[in-house]
Design a protein around this nucleic acid. Structure first.
Lengths: 207, 207
DNA sequence: TGCATCCGATACATTCGTGTATCGAATGGA
DNA sequence: TCCATTCGATACACGAATGTATCGGATGCA
């Protein structure tokens, strides 16, 4: 019955163990930073022994990657949802608010995400993956912007595509500050302001 | 003669050693990331033994902090220079170009700086220091913007101060992308575009 | 130049983390 | 329920990194 080489009876216990390891890893990574965490710490936080770890992952790197994929996927879904809500209604400011809400929800995630960024920055293959994620996100945003306010966008940025780039850059920029001052509310407000400034032409008063 | 408690005869050899250790640390940190570097690696890269290290620094953290201060100070000076050049001339686009040039000069520095960011994000006292650095930078920019194009700035951002915040955010955002794609030229152009979009009202055509 | 001081190399003890091999218990299909 | 299979705990061996203590050579002042 083995269609693929490694097809094995995947136990329920196994998926639970894996999930718990990932959860624990998230907590530990957020608290101490990927670079300062040992396999043993993750296991301890998860309530397992190292045997369980090596049975599920080959290395911390692999776990980190899996963790990133999982969480980033979740966020991406939420963002997609927030972008899609008001079909042809196209209320940009409201949309901005919703997306901002999702993107700046959890500082711990931003910490881990940034850890992953610097990690990826030194591994071309990981970097490529991350770049692809970002491009998908950008395309979703560009599509939304095109449908919403196509010609109303400032020309300097070069159309919806440039505007989407700008949105991502603004998000990244605000994230940096947020990591230091930990003021989520302020960051949200500030990101909203920034996006408004970027997406609305000076001649088109916001709101 | 000891005016202060720890006044010691500071040898030339010592300052050279210290400088070389810092230089080596920069290279090693840039290549592997702060979290993945051992004291021994730094010493090896510098051509010293661990004895030399412990004679100059108490820990890797301390060295990292010293390294950051040194380099960040250098950059800050250069930026200040670039901001000051054309006194009352006030040619904003040219100024943007010069600053952009300085800020996005060396990807290795951006790597180390981002490492320091995630490091600081988990130590409140270090974070405070970094926040102060950033605030000083922002003030310099705000001052320059106020002198240059005070009332011409988009109102959404809330004056020169808000605009300076926006400049920093744009810089941080572009940095993130640059760390992944390593395309300095593109990043420079893109940052220029972003700043133009942010700083010039839609009604005030750039250039 | 001579000498008190400082600097950095070496050696050592120790801790920490890793990866592997083995084994008993849990699991789920028959 | 029974049994083949898988999962994860434990024990072990090893390597890597740390911090300290000691010592000989370098340094700079008188």
């Amino acid at each position: 019955m083995a269609v693929e080489g490694g097809t094995r009876r995947v136990t329920r216990r196994r998926v639970r163990t894996r999930a718990r390891l990932l959860d624990a890893a998230f907590r530990v990574f957020a608290a101490k930073g990927f670079g300062r965490v040992s396999i043993e710490e993750v296991c301890e936080a998860a309530g397992y022994s190292r045997g369980a770890f090596y049975s599920n992952f080959a290395s911390l790197d692999e776990l980190f990657f899996a963790l990133y994929r999982e969480r980033a996927g979740l966020i991406a879904e939420q963002v997609a949802g927030a972008l899609a809500v008001d079909g042809p209604d196209l209320d940009v400011p409201a949309c901005v608010d919703r997306v901002t809400e999702v993107l700046l929800l959890d500082v711990d995630w931003l910490l881990v995400k940034t850890d992953f960024l610097v990690h990826a920055a030194r591994r071309p293959d990981v970097a490529r993956t991350l770049l692809e994620h970002r491009e998908r996100l950008r395309r979703a945003i560009a599509g939304r912007l095109a449908r919403a306010a196509g010609p109303a966008l400032p020309a300097v940025l070069g159309g919806a595509d440039g505007a989407a780039h700008a949105v991502v850059a603004a998000y990244d920029g605000v994230t940096t500050q947020l990591l230091l001052d930990r003021d989520v509310e302020h960051a949200r407000a500030w990101l909203g302001q920034l996006l408004t400034a970027l997406l609305t032409d000076g001649s088109t008063p916001a709101q």
